[in-house]
Write a protein that binds this DNA or RNA. Sequence first.
DNA 1: GATGAATGAGTATTCATTCAT
DNA 2: CATGAATGAATACTCATTCAT
Lengths: 201, 201, 201, 201
Amino acid sequence: MNRMNRNDSEKEIAIYEGVRKLIRQNVNLSQVTASEIAQAAGIGKGTLYNYFSTKDEIIARTVFYLIDQHLAQIQACMECQKHFEDKCRAALDFIRVQANQRDSQLHLMLMGIDGGQVAPFLRQGMERMRATMQEVERIVLMLAETGVAEGVIVRQESGYTVQVFLSALMGYCRCLCGPRKETDGVMAAQRAYQILVKALN
Amino acid sequence: MNRMNRNDSEKEIAIYEGVRKLIRQNVNLSQVTASEIAQAAGIGKGTLYNYFSTKDEIIARTVFYLIDQHLAQIQACMECQKHFEDKCRAALDFIRVQANQRDSQLHLMLMGIDGGQVAPFLRQGMERMRATMQEVERIVLMLAETGVAEGVIVRQESGYTVQVFLSALMGYCRCLCGPRKETDGVMAAQRAYQILVKALN
Amino acid sequence: MNRMNRNDSEKEIAIYEGVRKLIRQNVNLSQVTASEIAQAAGIGKGTLYNYFSTKDEIIARTVFYLIDQHLAQIQACMECQKHFEDKCRAALDFIRVQANQRDSQLHLMLMGIDGGQVAPFLRQGMERMRATMQEVERIVLMLAETGVAEGVIVRQESGYTVQVFLSALMGYCRCLCGPRKETDGVMAAQRAYQILVKALN
Amino acid sequence: MNRMNRNDSEKEIAIYEGVRKLIRQNVNLSQVTASEIAQAAGIGKGTLYNYFSTKDEIIARTVFYLIDQHLAQIQACMECQKHFEDKCRAALDFIRVQANQRDSQLHLMLMGIDGGQVAPFLRQGMERMRATMQEVERIVLMLAETGVAEGVIVRQESGYTVQVFLSALMGYCRCLCGPRKETDGVMAAQRAYQILVKALN
DNA sequence: GATGAATGAGTATTCATTCAT
DNA sequence: CATGAATGAATACTCATTCAT
């Protein structure tokens, strides 16, 4: 992962992390200013433009940076587990915990290209978004293979399998958004797994 | 329907429709200007402020206007059908067709409160959004009753039932976003129904 | 007097009184809106323009209306008194009491044409202002005659006499402006009279 | 002098001087636009807001800048003279000459806090205005001391002394406003001095 | 490379004035 | 005559971007 940001210099990463800091401070990405980003990153405003050509590029690339990291972390979580169910639960748990941080952009990615109303700073990143979505599908299919091998789920046409996983995931993320108790999230994870298994049998 | 906008005057509706026109022209709501809205509505810029106090209020209330309409239309579609499966398919078909128009805000609603990164113009409408989500849940549970009565699905705990419906729906909407062939959408609808039924049996 | 507003219709007077009400509510004349005036006058906004051609004209003519009234009242006060000193004190007392109302525009008049920084709404009324100043000078000279007749003051060149009266008056008004105790005002009146008499002997 | 603006940066002063230029062009401070100020100062519009937070702040601080300068210049004039009468005449002459420039804000200061109808941009500067008035009173009392020492005037209660000086000054300024011949001003100065001396004996 | 002062294009909002009713 | 809904010109202020140091 981070393939598409592989060349990010140290300074660029400082900028991404500055934006992350702002997101965690509950700043809305549509309203953040270049000055705020520079300050959060601990650099001068002009320096931003030595590494990016527009503010929107900064934000878009930060979003992808965060998504890539998030995906990589989820994969790492799953790799620590051997069985299908444990992998699923590990991923769902990780996502739930991260959602408390504000910088989990997973839901953003899941909505993918959303009918023209994507945040403006992502308009330019459609292509990149699609690539990320394909990566997600790849991960999902690999995970499904594990389930099939264990006999927990049944192999089905790949389009269907992907739709099941993403449906369960999106429904889960929806529960994680907005105010809720910790138990709600845990229960939603439980249900998401149940949906997965039932829909794939 | 349109319960919460019932008092909208003729002029307010003209403004909503102006915004709808802009959305259909693929204008991004975060970037639309007051002038554009006035022009699209066929009125003077100052007139906007006789009916709304800020531009963001215009947009937020338009979004709710569109969502209310959309929901009402979906309900109307479903009422024309007698059986659970037909109701589901009618709703999914309607959503698919509408998604080609750009003014289907369903996906927006489905994301609900999304972790602080909602479009700024919706910040003020959180409460309203929650109310709409509850309305959606009510519709879903009524629909589920039909399915149970017909023996197509099994009654389960309501939280689970809602999560299943919304998961299937969100996964479906995800497929409708972005470039795709007509057949993809039809197939996605088929799969969404399948997910529903399997997960509720 | 009120000679120059003689033709004011009932409605025009309602408008003047509306403005007076606003002034008493501590509204700044430079910032008052036509809507506020119409509302304070209890009439429709459009009606204003049946009697005046611009908002600034409304304000300027109101100012003159108020000044004329104020001057007339001061003269009436003085006519009730027989002796020079009593006339002076009656005028000073009246001014002090009125100053607590916010609609005493005397100080405005006293500054007369003030180096290009008059309130914009008075720009058009320069001519009228000069006429009012002449009226004031006439009153002052008549009052001085009384003093001379009584032997309290000495007749001097009229330019000097006028300057003395207006100086004493302006210095007095300055004390009435801003926060002060009741006693300060009374003492300032005493001093103003003292200045008058000394300077005219 | 300029004590209270001591920290003004070079750019701030350029802005003040821009406003001064506009005043001399007979622009009304209540109607001047931010763009005009920027242009007059020879800087970009945005730059204004790097040094001031609102347009009104610019104007208010300019007024105090001009008043401070004016007061300092008057004091300097007076210090060049040894005797009471010469000091008075020097100050009156300086004021008369400056009044032809439009940027003499002395009359503004003399009116001090004027019952709610101050120009809006000065609303925030009331406190500052009071401080300046106290400075004026201090100067007046020092000047009076000279006169007392020379036996030209008699020491009286300080409140009375101040009121005499300011009355004479305001009456004088009133004559300087509006159209007049040069001789009128000279004569008014002569009279103002006469009022002073008589009222303080 | 790094900086941040300077810039001016861009926009929401206000409000005097008009005019159809 | 009276009204107030409609209008759009006018303007303060923001902020992405540049560039001299």
